Simulated scan of single mutants.
Amino acid sequence: MLLLSEDQTRNALPYPDLIDALAEMFRSGCTMPTRHHHDFKIPGEPDGTMLLMPAWVPGGYAGVKVVNVVPGNSERNLPAVHGQYLLSDARTGEMLAMIDGGELTARRTAAASALAARYLARSDARHLLVLGTGRLAPNLIAAHMAIRSIEEVTIWGRSQEKTAQFARDLDGQLPIRIQAASSLRDALGLADIVSAATLSTEPLIKGDLLKPGAHVDLVGAFKPTMRESDDDLIERAEIYVDTRDGCLSEGGDIVQPLKSGLITPGDIKADLYELCRGEHPGRQSDATITMFKSVGAALEDLAGATLAYQNVEH
């Protein structure tokens, strides 16, 4: 069985290919059962959580991502999240590959954002603003650079010192201008694309600050209690999601305005299935503000794992 490390997984998933693989999987579809969610006791500390996310294409490939979340690991100087992906032959059942779950998740998440931006961001978008300085931030930059001619990236984070260092580190790696935001308010008014990957429980992106034609990509705030966008953005924007089922029940940027009555499920213009299948055209006006919310789907993991396996084997 093939075993792919973090570095091998990264090298096997170049963004142009990965974005196309996700698009094809959303077009063709796959079987995607509801993910399994199990808490397990750990004596003397908070419970851990085991997540099992299966998906398969009949006669093609099958896979399951296993993720363990252990909050108490912070006391052990260990990551709170550990994950692996097991890919199988869906015809014979043969186990084909074990793929690093963290790198697969980070790259497929960023690729889904870029796939949405392919339909929703203006074709002349050049300035990207990223909120957050975690693992997803450099991936979101690279993914958006694969589908738009990004010339300038601004980074915002809660710690100015950490954000400045993060921007300096990236500046030496990418052939574009990268800077730390001195003011989130000012940065929001300048950006063509705003991509947020935070765990915020209070809105960070104010809709009245965005310029006409901006595209907002909301990746963080994956629980109903979290939120990155305010009500002004919800009212101003055309709303798109990765999957309706996931976003209507999980992400606070959709769940909270639904609960308050600000929007209804019918206000979601389209999901990635509809965009990739040509059932909705995406952006239709240069002046429209578009918003994309993602919470992730096992379909994306399967597409990425299949691509990684095929790239290494062939």
Rank of each mutant, 00 (worst) to 15 (best):
L87F: 05
H36Q: 12
S74W: 11
L22A: 00
C30G: 06
R122V: 06
L115K: 11
Q8M: 09
N73I: 02
S123H: 12
A112G: 12
T92M: 07
D17I: 02
F26S: 07
L51Y: 05
W56V: 02
A106E: 15
V67I: 13
E75T: 12
H127K: 10
D39F: 13
R27W: 03
T109R: 03
N68I: 08
A21N: 00
D39E: 15
P71V: 04
F40S: 00
W56S: 08
I42E: 12
P33M: 07
R27G: 09
H37N: 13
I99T: 03
E45Q: 14
G72Y: 10
A97H: 07
N68C: 14
G44R: 04
E75I: 04
R126P: 08
E24F: 03
M32R: 12
R118V: 12
I42C: 12
I19Q: 08
R108M: 02
L51W: 00
S123V: 15
N77H: 15
V66T: 10
L18T: 03
P79Y: 01
Y15F: 14
A90T: 09
A114D: 07
A112R: 10
R126T: 13
R108S: 08
V69N: 07
T105A: 09
E103L: 07
G72T: 03
A62S: 11
S28K: 15
A80Y: 02
G48M: 05
M32P: 05
D17T: 06
M95K: 13
G83F: 04
D100Q: 04
P58W: 04
E103S: 13
P43A: 06
M32C: 14
T9L: 00
D89V: 06
Y85R: 02
R118A: 08
A62N: 06
A121M: 02
S123T: 15
H82K: 14
D39N: 13
T109A: 07
T49P: 06
D124A: 05
D100Y: 01
R76V: 01
P14G: 00
Y119Q: 11
A117H: 12
K41N: 13
D89F: 05
A106Y: 08
M50H: 07
L22Y: 04
C30H: 05
T109M: 03
D17C: 10
G102W: 02
S88E: 13
N11G: 12
M50T: 11
V81Y: 05
L129F: 00
M95L: 15
T92H: 04
E45Y: 11
P33Q: 04
H37R: 11
R122P: 06
I19E: 10
R91H: 14
V66M: 14
W56C: 02
N68W: 04
A23L: 05
Q8F: 03
A112T: 14
Y119P: 09
P33H: 01
A12E: 01
L18Q: 05
R107K: 11
L115I: 07
D47H: 11
I19N: 07
I99P: 04
P71C: 09
N68Y: 12
C30I: 06
I19H: 03
A110T: 12
R126G: 13
R10A: 15
M95T: 09
A80G: 13
L22I: 01
G44D: 12
A110G: 10
R91L: 15
I99S: 04
T34M: 12
T34Q: 13
D47M: 04
A55C: 03
P43Q: 08
M53P: 05
G63K: 03
V69G: 10
G29P: 00
A97I: 01
